[in-house]
Design a protein around this nucleic acid. Structure first.
Lengths: 105, 105
DNA sequence: AAACTATGTGGCTATATTGGCATATAAGCA
DNA sequence: TGCTTATATGCCAATATAGCCACATAGTTT
């Protein structure tokens, strides 16, 4: 019972780490291949320190891993199953939109 | 490009709605069948107003739907695919734990 | 209609999250 | 060694979120 709660809390924590526009964008950008921080910095409109913090959070929570090569650090997605889930989330969005349209009738 | 960002933001918003211990617990409790608010109130240790707000958030975001029957309101899960995803999240937790153990060596 | 039950809402405070700036570290290069 | 580039961290202010109490509403029962 209490363990169940604990597990639910852990799950919520993991979910929270990808439940942020910038962090989700990072995850999506890493869907096909690893990328260096510099590349992410280029494509995301935020201070590099902000992005760095998002990356370290994602890493700490096991979503990403990284390797260093010279000056650069390359991050990669550790849990590709997340991507499949996004289809489910897109379903939710579709369903939600339908509901709102329905409500207007 | 901009549409892509908009979609990512929407997805993050949906994710955020289930990325909370209590809300995730609610989703899990509704995995097998609909339940009335009273039942949720019994099982969750929080003020009924707090639970009510979580429910309305989940509904607004298309995760849950509800129907009224007399005094009671029954909520049900609209998007069962969320449950499948939780296995992926559990993988993350396992992976993360492994990493931490590894780091201690 | 008055009292009761189940649920929802407004308003407030406490806490958590975010983002940017300045600064630090680490590695390559002149 | 000093300079430059890539990345990370400390600190702080702004904003968002959560939770509780009090109150409101809807439906039921007497």
């Amino acid at each position: 019972m209490d363990n169940r709660n604990k597990l639910t809390e852990l799950k919520a924590e993991i979910l929270k780490s990808i439940a942020h526009p910038t962090r989700l964008a990072i995850v999506e950008m890493l869907s096909d291949s690893e990328k260096c921080v510099c590349e992410l910095n280029e494509q995301i409109d935020a201070d590099h320190s902000t992005i760095s913090k998002h990356l370290s959070l994602l890493k700490r929570n096991g979503i990403l891993s990284c390797r260093k090569e010279g000056l650069k650090v390359f991050y990669r997605l550790e849990v590709p199953c997340i991507l499949k889930f996004m289809d489910c989330i897109t379903d939710v969005i579709r369903k939600r939109t339908d509901q709102h349209l329905e409500a207007l009738k």
